Computed example of a mutant assay.
Amino acid sequence: MSKQRIGLLGTGPWAHRTHARALAAHPDVELSGVWGRRAEAAAALAAEHGTRAYAGEGDGEEGVDALFAASDAVAFALPPDIQAPLAVRAAAAGCHLLMDKPVATEPAKARAVAEAVGREGVASVVFCTMRFAPGSAGWIEEQAARNDWFTAHAHWLGSLFDQGRKDSPPDSPWRREKGGLWDVGPHALSVLMPVLGDVSEVTAVRGEPDLTHLVLRHTSGVTSSATLSLSAPQAGAGAGVEFRGASGTATLPEGKDDPVVSFTAAIDALLESIRTGDPHPCDARFGLRLTEILTRAETSVRENTEKGEG
C-alpha cells in the first residue's frame, strides 16, 4: 500500500506533542496538511512539519473541506463536540478517521459519526490510549483470554485541575466542564470492557469537585467499579486497573508509555483497517458505545444527587 495522505485537525498541545510528531515521522504516512480554527496556529504547526496549513470552516482553497479533498484520512486533536460533526463531513468526503476519545459527549452526535462511517465505507479508529500503548495493549489481550474473572476495579485520578498545583493547567474548557467522567472515563472503560464485556447497567455518584464513582454490570454477569477525577491532589494522582478471579489477581503494568509511540500504534491500526477492510475493535461504533455509557452515568449522577438533596 502506498503512503496514505493523512491530515491533522487541531493545533493544541496534544496536536503539537503527539499527533503531528507521530504522523510526520510515520514511514507510511504523508502529513497532508494541518487545519485549525486559528489560522496563525495552523500555519505555525504546519511550518514546523513542512506541510500546508488550512483554516476556516468552508470549502474554499484554505478551508477544512480542502484538507479533506487533499487527504485519504484525517486525524483529530479537537474537543469532542467539535470533532464529531467534522468527522461526519470528513467521512462524506471519503476520508478514513482517526479520532480522539470521546468521539462526542452526546449520543446523537456520536451515532451520526458511526452511521457516516458505515454509510461511506471508511475505516475508523478511536484513540483510546491504553488499547495501543505497548505496556498495556498486550496485557489487556491476555486478560480478555481468561474467563474466570469475579470483579475488577479501575481508578484514573488526574491532577489537571488540582487547586494546589503550582503551574497553570492547560486551557481545556470542555474538560473543565465535563470533568474526569468524560476525559478519563473512556480510558477505564476501554480496559474493562474488552475483558468483562459490554456494560449493561451503570450507577454513578459524584463527590467534589469532580470525583465520580461508577458501579458497572457487564454482559458477562460480572460487576466492576471505577473511580475517576481530573482534580485529584498531585500527590494522590495515578491510574490503575486490577482484575480478580479464580486464578488470582492481575494488575495493569505500571509505567508511562510515550504517547507518540502509542499514537503511532493507532496510526498502524488505521492503516491495517484500510488495507484489509476489517473494522478495528476501537472503531466509531465503540466510540458511540462509550458515549452512550458515559451519558447514562451522567444521568445517574444527576438522579442520585437529586435524591440526596430531596
Rank of each mutant, 00 (worst) to 15 (best):
Asp65Ala: 15
Gly245Cys: 11
Ile6Phe: 12
Gly118Glu: 05
Leu216Met: 09
Ala70Lys: 08
Val64Lys: 06
Leu31Lys: 01
Asp65Lys: 10
Gly33Arg: 01
Gln143Trp: 10
Glu242Phe: 14
Ala75Gln: 02
Glu306Met: 14
Phe286Ala: 03
Ile140Ser: 00
Pro209Arg: 09
Val125Cys: 03
Ala235His: 15
Asp148Met: 08
Ala112Lys: 06
Arg5Tyr: 08
Arg289Ala: 14
Leu8Gln: 07
Glu292Ala: 10
Leu270Phe: 03
Leu228Thr: 01
Lys3Glu: 13
Asp148Tyr: 07
Ile267Ala: 03
Val117Asp: 02
Thr151Ile: 15
Ala108Gln: 14
Thr11Cys: 10
Leu294Trp: 03
Leu290Asn: 00
Lys109Tyr: 13
Pro259Thr: 04
Val205Phe: 10
Thr129Gln: 14
Trp14Ser: 14
Arg111Ile: 09
Ile82Asp: 12
Ile267Tyr: 02
Pro281His: 01
Lys256Gln: 14
Thr203Val: 14
Asp278Tyr: 12
Ile274Asp: 05
Glu61Val: 12
Ile293Thr: 13
Leu31Asn: 02
Gly238Leu: 06
Gln234Phe: 15
Gln83Phe: 02
Arg52His: 12
Ile6Cys: 11
Gly12Met: 06
Gly277Arg: 02
Leu9Cys: 08
Gly121Leu: 02
Glu201Pro: 11
Lys109Thr: 06
Cys282Leu: 08
Asp59Ala: 14
Asp28Arg: 14
Arg285Lys: 11
Leu271Asp: 05
Gly236Asp: 15
Glu115Gly: 04
Thr219Trp: 08
Gln83Val: 00
Leu160Gln: 04
